[in-house]
C-alpha cells in the first residue's frame, strides 16, 4: 500500500493543457475519485500516474519516491481500463495470470494467486473461457482480478463501470467498494458520473480544464461547492443561481421549498412563478422563474403547487451559498 502525491504536475499536448498544475495527495488506502466532464484532464492525470504519459513538468511521488522516470511496470501499480483491455486470445485464467507469469513466479504460486483473485471476485467458474464468451459484468471482474492479483501498491481505475448496463452497474459499484475496503489498496478512480463519485469516494477531486477545482469528502463537495463550476457540475438537477448585483445567490433544488414548509425564521422568501411540473415517481421537479432566473425545485412530497401560478417559495439561510459573479469563487459572508 502506498501514498501518492502529485506536485505541480503538468501535461501539455501542444497548445492543449490537459493537466495544468495539479497538487494532490492521496493517503494510504484511500479511495480517491477524480470527477470531471470529458476533456477535464482526469484520465490524463491517471495516465501520468500509471506512467503511460510523461509529465511536461512537476513530479509524481509514490510513497517518498519520485517515479517520473520509472517505467510503468516498475511502479507497483495496476490499472483497470474503461474497455477492460482483456487479452482476447487468452483464457480468463491466463489473463489473470499474465502479470504473475511476467514476474516469473512458479507455476503453483501463480495458480494459487489466480484462484484467490478469482474467488474474491466470484469468477472461478469462468477461468477456462475466453473473454469473448463472457458477459460485460464478468469481463469487468476479470479486469479487476487481473489488477488485484499482483497486490499492487496503487490501483487505478478508468471509468470501469461505464460499459455496464444500469442494473449491473448498481451492484458492481457496491461490490467494488467492498473489495477496495477488504484489500485496503490505495485507489484512484476516474469517472464523469457524479453518482458513482459520491457513492464510492472517500474523497472526490473535481477537475475542469486541467485543474482541480475542489477536493473534499462527497458531502463537502455537495454541500459546500468551492466555485460555480463545482456547484453546477455536482448535483442533479444542478444548483439554482440567482443573479443579484455582482454576486450569485445559489441553493440546491431540494432546499427550495414552498414557504409554508419552512418554519425556520432564518429564511429567505422568493416569488416563484411555476411554469411546469414533472412527476418523477417519488418526487416532483418544479420548473419556473424568480425574476428572470430559471429555477428548479425538487419536492419530495405531493404539494398543491399548480402550473401557471405564483407561489411564495423559501430557502433556509443556512442553505444559501454566495459566489462572485466574475471569478466564480465562493464568497463566505
Amino acid at each position: 500500500m502506498a501514498r501518492v502525491r502529485f506536485n505541480d504536475l503538468k501535461k501539455h499536448f501542444g497548445p492543449v493543457k490537459a493537466v495544468d498544475g495539479v497538487d494532490l495527495e492521496i493517503a494510504d488506502g484511500e479511495f480517491l475519485v477524480l470527477l470531471g466532464p470529458s476533456g477535464s484532464g482526469k484520465t490524463t492525470l491517471m495516465r501520468l500516474c500509471a506512467g503511460l504519459e510523461e509529465p511536461t513538468a512537476g513530479s509524481i511521488f509514490i510513497d517518498d519516491q519520485v517515479v517520473n522516470d520509472v517505467a510503468p511496470r516498475k511502479r507497483g501499480i495496476a490499472m483497470v481500463f474503461q474497455s477492460y483491455a482483456l487479452y482476447p486470445h487468452m483464457t480468463v485464467f491466463k489473463n489473470i495470470a499474465f502479470p504473475l507469469s511476467v514476474e516469473g513466479l512458479p507455476r503453483q504460486e501463480i495458480r494459487d494467486k489466480v484462484e484467490w483473485a478469482a474467488g474474491l471476485l466470484g469468477i472461478a467458474h469462468l477461468l477456462e473461457r475466453k473473454p469473448a464468451l463472457i458477459s460485460g459484468g464478468e469481463r469487468q471482474r476479470v479486469a479487476i482480478a487481473r489488477a488485484l492479483v499482483r497486490r499492487p501498491r496503487v490501483l487505478l481505475m478508468d471509468e470501469p463501470l461505464s460499459n455496464l448496463d444500469a442494473k449491473v452497474r448498481h451492484t458492481a459499484r457496491d461490490e467494488l467498494k467492498k473489495f477496495q475496503r477488504e484489500i485496503g489498496v490505495t485507489t484512484i478512480y476516474v469517472t464523469h458520473d457524479q453518482v458513482e463519485a459520491m457513492g464510492l469516494g472517500d474523497r472526490i477531486a473535481v477537475m475542469n480544464e486541467g485543474k482541480i477545482r475542489q477536493i473534499g469528502s462527497p458531502d463537502e463537495i455537495y454541500q459546500e461547492p468551492a466555485d460555480t463550476f463545482v456547484a453546477g457540475f455536482v448535483g442533479l438537477p444542478p444548483m439554482n443561481f440567482l443573479e443579484e448585483g455582482g454576486a450569485l445567490t445559489a441553493f440546491r433544488p431540494e432546499t427550495f421549498l414552498p414557504a409554508d414548509l419552512i418554519t425556520d425564521q432564518e429564511r429567505r422568501i422568493f416569488n416563484f412563478r411555476v411554469e411546469r411540473i414533472e412527476h418523477l415517481g417519488s418526487y416532483l421537479l418544479v420548473y419556473g422563474k424568480v425574476g428572470d432566473n430559471l429555477m428548479i425545485a425538487n419536492l419530495s412530497l405531493r404539494h398543491p403547487v399548480e402550473e401557471g401560478t405564483e407561489v411564495p417559495f423559501a430557502v433556509r439561510l443556512a442553505d444559501i451559498r454566495y459566489y462572485d459573479r466574475a471569478s466564480g469563487r465562493r464568497i463566505v459572508k
Partner: peptide
C-alpha cells in the same frame, strides 16, 4: 489499451 495493459502488467 491492450498494449498499455500489458505494459502496466509488467511486460
Amino acid at each position: 489499451e491492450i498494449v498499455e495493459a500489458a505494459q502496466i502488467d509488467g511486460a
